[in-house]
Nucleic acid binder design. Structure first.
Lengths: 216, 216
DNA sequence: TAGATTGTTAATCGATTAACAATC
DNA sequence: TAGATTGTTAATCGATTAACAATC
């Protein structure tokens, strides 16, 4: 629902990182920054950074660099930081509870507005300021609260079934912490966060490559 | 420390996913599988899967597919599943505790063998079977237990300092849950898991692209 | 042999980066 | 003007995928 025609995926993935570091710089009172200084801090090639920015137009000044405040304001708009995005958490186990506590809202425009679980002992309580509903209320709450993003931290056995329910409720994006590669219709986006996988890949790289800094 | 000359990074990242699904198939008693069936389950293109496998040699039979057990055994060796890998957890906050509870060991050859924290109330206790040490014991424990992978779940303010300590202790791989892009010397690999970032990217894609399944 | 599916070639696509003219 | 750094061109690199001959 924002501007610009087509930003490459790789660039889009870096936007939140630019945004966060610019916020940090601005808070610290830094007024200007060059692509090479940015490169040192966030570890992307300076040319990649300039190329990324240039997809949005000419944001810098030659011979000077970028104005931190102006750039921050710009990316703030690109990432729609003015509106608050409500997110649902599905499954309040250990990981779910840690995420409830995570406070996304402090460093972004997102917050977990509702959590769902099947355990009667949890339902009805409020954890880290978030009400925990029964899975039976999923459809209704998601519609009422106009949520279209869900974080999935349920046992893998029920991952696909619950995903189907989420789709039915109108969810458009799922941050999937289960190891199951869930099936979703076109128009729904799944982002997998597979912790076992990350660790295993890390180990494989260390054992088989010289390995340098990288990652995400 | 294993075989094969140079597997592309993209392929290496998929290996744990192949391994896990083959384990699942084998447990279910499935004896053979084709690349297109695999493709349906784990959502990688069938040609990509065949290409990935072929880096390791001719593992399949034309006109038949792949023998599940043989393939599983093979990848088990590639991923060195026979040896147990000890991992350290640095920072036993909410997220750290959730990871302690995560039980990587159940679905892989990894386990958290030691946790570290600065909070005196936590030090000396055992959580989910893992002893919690003082940060003062970091160097010693990591050496004694021959750990070379660390999971970093500390406040971002101390992320770089603690990373430096980890390097000094001989850590070669860091799974970094902090938003800080830590600096490490060549030969050390960092894998960033940035939850705020993942969510923000997901939202950006949903708002700006039609969005299809993807992720990781 | 007929049918199926691999392994691989070749084309395509997307992302990164060196290099430098443009210009503040 | 002299110095610095952008924005962009062009080359390179890496990953994906269609297509099909090889072969079980």
């Amino acid at each position: 629902m924002t501007e610009q025609p087509k930003i490459p995926r790789a660039t889009a993935k870096r936007l939140p990182i630019y945004f966060r570091y610019l916020t940090f710089l601005n808070d610290a009172g830094t007024e200007r920054i060059s692509s090479s200084e940015l490169s040192d801090a966030i570890k992307f090639d300076a040319a990649t950074i300039r190329r990324d920015f240039s997809y949005f137009g000419a944001l810098g000044k030659r011979g000077y660099g970028y104005d931190v405040k102006a750039l921050l304001d710009f990316f703030s708009k690109v990432l729609d930081q003015d509106s608050l995005i409500n997110v649902a958490l599905i499954g309040v186990g250990h990981l779910g509870q840690a995420l409830l506590n995570f406070n996304f809202h402090q460093s972004s425009n997102m917050r977990i507005a509702a959590a769902f679980d099947v355990n009667p002992e949890r339902i009805g309580h409020v954890l880290s300021g978030v009400p925990i509903y029964s899975m039976d209320d999923l459809q209704e709450q998601i519609r009422v609260q106009r949520i279209n993003i869900a974080i999935l931290t349920v046992p893998q056995e029920v991952a696909q079934d619950i995903t189907d329910e989420l789709i039915k409720a109108g969810i458009k994006g799922i941050l999937n912490f289960t190891p199951v590669r869930v099936t979703v219709p076109a128009g729904v986006r799944v982002q997998n966060v597979d912790l076992t996988n990350e660790l295993q890949t890390l180990i494989y790289f260390i054992d088989n490559y010289g390995s340098i800094t990288t990652g995400n």
